[in-house]
Design a protein around this nucleic acid. Sequence first.
DNA 1: AAGTGGTCTAGACCACTCA
DNA 2: GAGTGGTCTAGACCACTTG
Lengths: 245, 245
Amino acid sequence: MLSDRAISASRFTTKPLYLQLRDALAERIARGEWKPGSAIPNESDLAREFGVSAGTMRKALDLMEGEHLLTRRQGRGTFVNDQASDELAVRFNNLRGPDGERILAQVKSTHITEAIANEQERARLQLGPHDRLYRMHRIRQHGGEPFMVEDVAVPVALFPGLGEGKTISPRIVVLAQEYGILLGKAEERVSISEADAGVAEALGLAAGSPVMVLDRVVQTLDGRPVEWRKAWCNLADNHYMAVMV
Amino acid sequence: MLSDRAISASRFTTKPLYLQLRDALAERIARGEWKPGSAIPNESDLAREFGVSAGTMRKALDLMEGEHLLTRRQGRGTFVNDQASDELAVRFNNLRGPDGERILAQVKSTHITEAIANEQERARLQLGPHDRLYRMHRIRQHGGEPFMVEDVAVPVALFPGLGEGKTISPRIVVLAQEYGILLGKAEERVSISEADAGVAEALGLAAGSPVMVLDRVVQTLDGRPVEWRKAWCNLADNHYMAVMV
DNA sequence: AAGTGGTCTAGACCACTCA
DNA sequence: GAGTGGTCTAGACCACTTG
């Protein structure tokens, strides 16, 4: 069995078996071998396939459930998460309405260009001096009113051919799934600023009005930066919500 | 053995053993039976004491490590976390300086009163119509400058005798540890407002200046609200930082 | 009734720390 | 070298879902 060999051969490395299993299974999801929403083989079949005990396989599967890659349900099976699903697509979206419900922003306009990363982009995305990226400029609206302007940057290396006329998902979580990129955590810096002329016009505010600035970097599962987004937001009655554990 | 009986007797409930163990061990920490910073017995001794297998005890201990109650280190042992330690005391504090370092605010003044919860306080702290609470008003400074005004409310039921002249830790994490309360997660709503007269004066701003408003509820490990804090903050060069997983 | 994940056991061996 | 937590195994039984 191929995968059996692959795992056995690496038994002499320092990395624990269950982490190697996690990587092997994640790879299958990333490559599209296991489709979003579909069931994967049960614990004991997988254990047999990889030549490990069921307990070790379980540890890998549990880990992946915590990473939002899988959902396990007693009596049903283990399923590949669809990152475009309602619960997951809004994962890195902390804006909420007065009622506490997550705000689902519509994209009003998008503009995309390709360029060489500037100093700030290189720092945020950990790129080299000649690396290229796609820049996207979007205006989002909510309840018919424009409420957010965002500048997004993603490395060309991770999203090859992104600029070539295909429709682009405005959600990084969905876009990453389409490109076989598994996402881990994101960090967001929240601050207050005064709207400059461009932002003010797009949001229908007076120049100098206070806006909330969201500066977010999304990482892959193994910690490499995937997307840098800076957004200016007319909060109005809404708020940003963070949970701390 | 006492604890042996206690666990065995509850084997017929639906709650999994490892969760019962978690509760029993957490209780020892809350009661001060196991002091912050001290080592607890090893896995197999604990398993023997409670009459369970080592694997089940391990599952409980691992869970508690994830809840910031314990720290386990290979070759050393398992230790009770000190919530007043540098890493943990700032757990619910998301403000950071320009360099990304957490801001440690000094308390400039505190004022404490006891009262019956008003409607908003009852909603946030899930209290009944006649429940009492302590209200605290604080001004915090950073780098010599006042930068935050906060109104804090905690139920009298959880912090009996808080108002009676003792020195009160300005950190809810530390205060909770002193009262034997184990904390779980916190939720914080971030918004923008204009400084009213009182806030403006305390922060040395013009009335109407934009300030960041932090509205935070801290919960116990089992989800009961412990503290409601509303804070007005002169951000300046600083920012709020959230991590999403 | 058959199949799934969830819990629990009893043991082995490894990696790390410290006296 | 003794003691700790970390990994891994091989099995049993339970709880839940579905046909």
